[in-house]
């Protein structure tokens, strides 16, 4: 073995991944995947003496009765969306039945779009199992909470929603291409930004998922911008929202309207 090979012995990728795993572990040891409901003004603890955020928290607290936090692991949009929508469905039999039907059919649709059937089935089975567990009538709210804090179930739901989102982006490639910047193709975007776990979501993910599942989402934006109020945006525009989320730069949590 010559000298150059010796110096290559340090496997950089592995060192980087080790460090990343360490950071992730610190987060997962301290923050649950999905928290219990908390009062909206509990947000103030993070913004002591910050007037911009202070007034926005007051505005938010006037419109929403509670917040449920999600772990900031890059999956927060998908996890928050799934939790909030399933919670809604557990109380709305007709919408639940329609969603279950759509979810059942989604597997064949994704296979037809070119996803590998073998691995897709694994995620789909678990996804259906979770839907089954929260059917109206069973109405054990703790069950949903337990499932979403069990990493295995919780992450499989996230994976499956990512695949549905990716499928939607592929189906509507002509449309979604407009939102992808730079020299990234639709395929690259799907494989690099949508399908891998822990990749953060952008507008394009939200629009694609909402269209695929036919669900309205209202996102309240809270950032350092002027105005003293949070800004609501509905996806798709003009729909009646079933899911309410709070967005602060880089992170989504679940909101409960008054």
């Amino acid at each position: 073995m010559d000298q150059t090979e010796e110096t290559d012995a340090v496997n950089r990728d592995e060192l980087i991944m080790q460090q990343q795993r360490q950071i992730e572990k610190e987060i997962s040891d301290t923050i649950p995947l999905v928290s219990e409901e908390q009062p909206v003004d509990s947000l103030n603890n993070e913004y002591m003496g910050d007037d911009v955020y202070g007034s926005k928290v007051r505005d938010l607290a006037a419109k929403y009765r509670a917040i449920r936090r999600t772990r900031p692991d890059g999956n927060c949009f998908f996890r928050a969306f799934a939790y909030s929508y399933l919670e809604y469905l557990a109380g709305h039999k007709e919408d639940y039945d329609a969603f279950k039907e759509l979810a059942l059919k989604s597997k064949d649709k994704l296979v037809a779009l070119g996803f590998p059937q073998f691995t897709l089935e694994d995620f789909h089975d678990t996804f259906m199992e979770v839907i089954e567990h929260v059917s109206p009538g069973e109405n054990d709210k703790q069950e949903l909470h337990k499932l979403f804090n069990a990493q295995g179930y919780s992450d499989y739901v996230v994976v499956y929603l990512r695949l549905i989102t990716s499928g939607q982006v592929q189906e509507g490639a002509d449309f979604y291409q407009n939102f992808i910047d730079g020299n990234c193709t639709i395929q690259e975007f799907r494989h690099q930004e949508v399908e891998p776990m822990y990749k953060e979501s952008d507008h394009i993910h939200i629009i694609a998922l909402c269209s695929a599942l036919n669900v309205g989402v209202r996102v309240e934006y809270m950032d350092r911008g002027e105005g003293g109020q949070v800004k609501a945006h509905d996806f798709p525009e003009g729909t009646d929202p079933k899911v309410y989320l709070l967005y602060r730069p880089g992170h989504y949590d679940i909101l409960y309207p008054n």
């Binding site: 996803f115 494989h191 776990m197």
Partner: peptide
């Protein structure tokens, strides 16, 4: 060790 994107940042749960 192997330097291959799908084993790092381009991993997808659909790979077996």
């Amino acid at each position: 060790g192997i330097c291959l994107d799908i084993l790092q940042n381009r991993w997808s749960p659909t790979y077996d």
